[in-house]
Write a protein that binds this DNA or RNA. Sequence first.
DNA 1: ACGTTGCGCTCCAACGTTGGATCACGATGG
DNA 2: CCATCGTGATCCAACGTTGGAGCGCAACGT
Lengths: 321, 321
Amino acid sequence: MSNVVNDTGRVGDATRSRVEAVIAELGYRPNLAGRQLRRGRTNTLALAVPWVHAPYFSVLAHEMIDVGGDRGYRVLIEETRSSRETELEVARGFDVQAIDGIIFSPLELNPAEIDEVRGTVPLVLLGERADPDPARERRTDHVSIDNVDAAAQVTRHLLETGRRRLAFLGAEPPGAGRTGAQRVQGFLDAHTAAGLEADERWVLQCPQFSRPAGAATVESVLPRIDQVDGIVCANDELALGALYALRRNGVRVPDDIAVTGWDNTEDGRFSNPTLTTVAPDLRAIAETAVDRIIAQLENRSVEPVDEVVPYRLLVRESSRA
Amino acid sequence: MSNVVNDTGRVGDATRSRVEAVIAELGYRPNLAGRQLRRGRTNTLALAVPWVHAPYFSVLAHEMIDVGGDRGYRVLIEETRSSRETELEVARGFDVQAIDGIIFSPLELNPAEIDEVRGTVPLVLLGERADPDPARERRTDHVSIDNVDAAAQVTRHLLETGRRRLAFLGAEPPGAGRTGAQRVQGFLDAHTAAGLEADERWVLQCPQFSRPAGAATVESVLPRIDQVDGIVCANDELALGALYALRRNGVRVPDDIAVTGWDNTEDGRFSNPTLTTVAPDLRAIAETAVDRIIAQLENRSVEPVDEVVPYRLLVRESSRA
DNA sequence: ACGTTGCGCTCCAACGTTGGATCACGATGG
DNA sequence: CCATCGTGATCCAACGTTGGAGCGCAACGT
């Protein structure tokens, strides 16, 4: 019977059609638990992200589900809620047997910490590239765009269109390897390359990468906002929050201040003004990540890789000269 | 041993701690497949939505995951991609044994069609209320806000603030019980109640409830856009698309035309102008839905219910007088 | 001293699937 | 006519968990 369902073994034509008839008649569906128990595989991948409802992650989830489906895998979404505890659970390979592999977009943990606790479950990290200690040998697959490079390119774009006093919104302390830190690095690099010096007082941190946080941070520097003529934001949500706060206070974008985002979320494509942004190739990220998991499952290429996928700079109204 | 893990049966203190020590030492985690096979339960619910990346559904998913987690259930997301085929699979109770219950937000199927094909898996429908044949006996649980009532309230709000020639964006043919149809109904009801007559030529359909679709539909009626002074949209995304198209063409919101949305997505809270919207109580929807599934699982109250959860009208800039 | 009670430990079948091992049978070759 | 071979059907153990059945033992009552 399993030979008919899975088309294995030697089965005669007569028996085959007889079995098929019964299957159709009873509406038989193989029990996944039994199958899993026997096979030891679930054909299920987990995608662990901080929040499903963040625009970037919801689109990422959509792409992963799509790509996973193409490859014969169900993808289930796990929310870490930016909790260190939950992220550690994920890195350890939570719920091991129920899942064939984990695609993990960490927020609180850096690659070194993940390498330290990770088990044997196939794991691919998204979104971080820099490491606290770059010399350290990586043990885990990794997929992302070149954050430093992309941030430098946005910054150069603003400098080249005549903006001179730039702020950065969504910075994070260097050394921990967080996303915000890498993007700040590119921001600073671009200044140096242009023979300019970035003003450290305008490298601003935000409690989260959300619209309310972006708006609140801009509000807090409003008294001296006329000192800057451009704001590079670590993501679209911060940028949209910034746009909101600026508009509320009569600052015109892009006339008085240019604003750029990151992620190419749909909100930024339809916002007023439309948002200049860094557009990572999400499809490529999803495909690369899923394929790496499959490679690990098949024991091919045990060597951890560090895949860099393309991105594009999309210039829109918010940074017009 | 299972007696220790699950705290069942009679176990002495000595044995208990001895077993616990071994569990800790080996890092034992119960195998879910084995457990499921034995127990016949998975403690997993499926949430089936058209798209994960639509803002409304991504927030809904977030709430479901949260509420499900509180109740001891993992929630996994299924994308139907607005495919009739996939929706039928879901209604039939796809992947039965792997899932304890399904929370289903249908797009293409109406309640009657779902009742017809549904199996025995606990099922709760979201978002639709009207039925092609209201006299028909419902067989499936149902949770939503009162769409007709809410649409009437938005429309009344516009009429009361002096708007007189209103359009509706995102209509759907009546009779099929689709969301858009119910909201149009409320729109028409409010006109009648106010002793006015809605202009049928301004009841506009859209291919999808998305920003691009909203923008495209507004573009298509631009030549005669000065005939209206208010647009009630079937959701926030359509409304944001409309705002975009209007702005591109020099129509001022709310000065020339008022625009309202539906869903209270974050995009509408930070858009320019901010968007008047109908805010369904998502938390209540999630809690009610999950609790109904659990009730069905426990065989309590086999009677299908039709729960109506609260909503609020949030008036923002886009409909100011 | 023996029977009874009940606590707590050990044992084992069953959940459904799978695929190798085993077995039955007809065909072919010597 | 018997031995061999190949085809295809059937059988069964194993995956890990669970909870009831069964059993040993100590405490208690008579």
